[in-house]
């Protein structure tokens, strides 16, 4: 993959932040799916996702309307991920019509999955690390309003709160269940 892209995503501090959350917790997945469904409904989009950018791939942590996406896999290469832009800039990344966007028009998810519109908001932890993105996707072009982007950013904050509630055993916030059960 692109060495520069990999180098930027492989920052040790960001990856350490990712390890502090139990991304495989089924309850977290349920919460992320529910937030995605709410975002999709509010923005009238068929698909909403929460993604985590690993060092050279995107992992889909939760979503709504994702069936058939990315060949049904758990994610995709970082260089194909719109969300990589969101993570690297730390700001909302918006594509109204990917077929007319020079940076995305030859992207396989545009050619194979038919993605046309994308808006993503970064998932910023309390310590300032960017884990991934909360995003919406459509197969038809769409011009996003400021209100829609603000709603997406608010949902991204809800996603971060959900992650904070699911620390991994590598997190300082982790409390073994035998301390909390009974």
């Amino acid at each position: 993959m692109s060495t520069l892209l990999h180098h930027r995503l492989a920052a040790r501090e960001r990856l350490e932040a990712l390890t502090r959350y139990d991304v495989d917790d089924p309850h977290l997945k349920q919460q992320l799916d529910a937030i995605a469904m709410r975002t999709a409904m509010h923005l009238h989009m068929p698909t909403a996702l929460t993604t985590l950018m690993l060092d050279n791939a995107m992992l889909i942590a939760g979503g709504h309307g994702v069936d058939g996406w990315l060949r049904g896999g758990p994610g995709g290469p970082a260089e194909w991920a719109f969300c990589a832009q969101t993570v690297l800039t730390g700001e909302p990344y918006i594509v109204s019509d990917a077929t007319k966007d020079p940076a995305q028009c030859t992207n396989p998810v545009v050619e194979l999955d038919g993605v046309r519109a994308y808006a993503g908001a970064p998932l910023i932890t309390p310590s300032g690390q960017i884990l991934g993105a909360h995003c919406v996707v459509d197969v038809t072009p769409h011009v996003f309003s400021e209100q829609e982007i603000a709603e997406l950013q608010a949902a991204a904050e809800d996603v971060v709160t959900a992650f904070e509630q699911h620390p991994s055993r590598h997190s300082p916030q982790f409390t073994p269940t035998f301390f909390t059960n009974g």
């Binding site: 060495t3 892209l5 930027r8 970082a78 260089e79 194909w80 990589a84 800039t89 940076a103 030859t106």
Partner: peptide, 9 residues
């Protein structure tokens, strides 16, 4: 805008 090449170099 970050340049994400397709395909990578």
């Amino acid at each position: 805008m970050i340049d994400l090449p397709h395909p990578p170099p």
